[in-house]
Write a protein that binds this DNA or RNA. Structure first.
Lengths: 148, 148
DNA sequence: AAGTTGTTTTGGGTAAATCAAAACAACTTT
DNA sequence: AAAGTTGTTTTGATTTACCCAAAACAACTT
């Protein structure tokens, strides 16, 4: 695992991204971020499949560890749609939501329907202090709609 | 399991409810509905704990089966908040949402913030046909807020 | 170049839920 | 009221996604 690739422009941006979050820059971390650039909303297992191509010898457990660390650092967002395993995406901090296809499980991003810091107002917050509102739209994607 | 309790007024309402959905009325089903009256948002395991008091000999597997059947029949709604096991509730068909406490995992119902059939309009539906919008508000309940 | 700290590997382990076959009970039909 | 049909429940095995902990190791610091 002493495989230090030449720092290309792309990996260099990723390096800064990781370092900037106060984390050590490692090949598995670069590989995970790189994989999620290509495949947003991928599961840990899917990321692992991609990562081990680029960096054979990486363990699934390492991928779980990397995903957890990067999520905790705010570099990734974790979503857990009902019925699926957890998915990860690089787009963070912008209060966007998700469309999930009930036919094929594909996930698409949607900007917030209501405005900038929008969905934070529950009609009756019942004494709760609401920190975040998460919206999931369930439906059929264009492709599955045509297939039906 | 040939324990047929006298049909009280309460169980009688439940019987009609089940029968009306075209399902056979069984003791485990009555017990599950009864348990969920007392504890909305309970997990399969929690329901099982309650049911086996009332109806010893009931298997956990039976509870899973009952929950799945009643959910499929529209008599129960299943919710799966990130980080928890699945929860079930009797309140169905009314497009309500949930407040989840990140401190103690308690769940409260909220009516929809936006109106009657409210959150069905994603700003950019990206070719999707949206069937349902699910909103989860994350925050701290009154109690956890005071404890902090 | 050596040391410190944080990361990854390895291997074991768990919780939640699913699957399938056989035993059984609810409703229907006669 | 009894027998038959269909749907439910039990039992037991299995799967999937994920966590835990110790030891090996690599990244950054001085």
């Amino acid at each position: 695992m002493t495989m230090t690739n030449p720092p290309t422009a792309m990996t260099d941006a990723l390096r800064q991204c990781i370092r900037g979050a106060g984390l050590k820059v490692t090949e598995p971390r670069l590989a995970v971020l790189h994989a999620l650039d290509a495949m947003p909303h991928a599961s840990a297992d899917t990321v692992f499949g991609e990562v081990k191509n680029q960096l054979p010898g990486t363990s699934l457990q390492a991928v779980y560890g990397v995903l957890a660390a990067l999520t905790a650092a705010g570099l990734l967002r974790k979503i857990e749609p009902a019925g699926s395993s957890a998915r990860y995406e690089r787009r963070t901090g912008d209060n966007h939501h998700h469309l999930v296809c009930t036919g094929c499980d594909v996930i698409k991003d949607v900007d917030c329907a209501v405005g900038e810091a929008p969905c934070l107002t529950a009609a009756d917050a019942a004494g709760f202090e609401v920190r975040e509102a998460e919206v999931t739209y369930w439906g059929l994607c264009a492709q599955c709609r045509h297939a039906a």
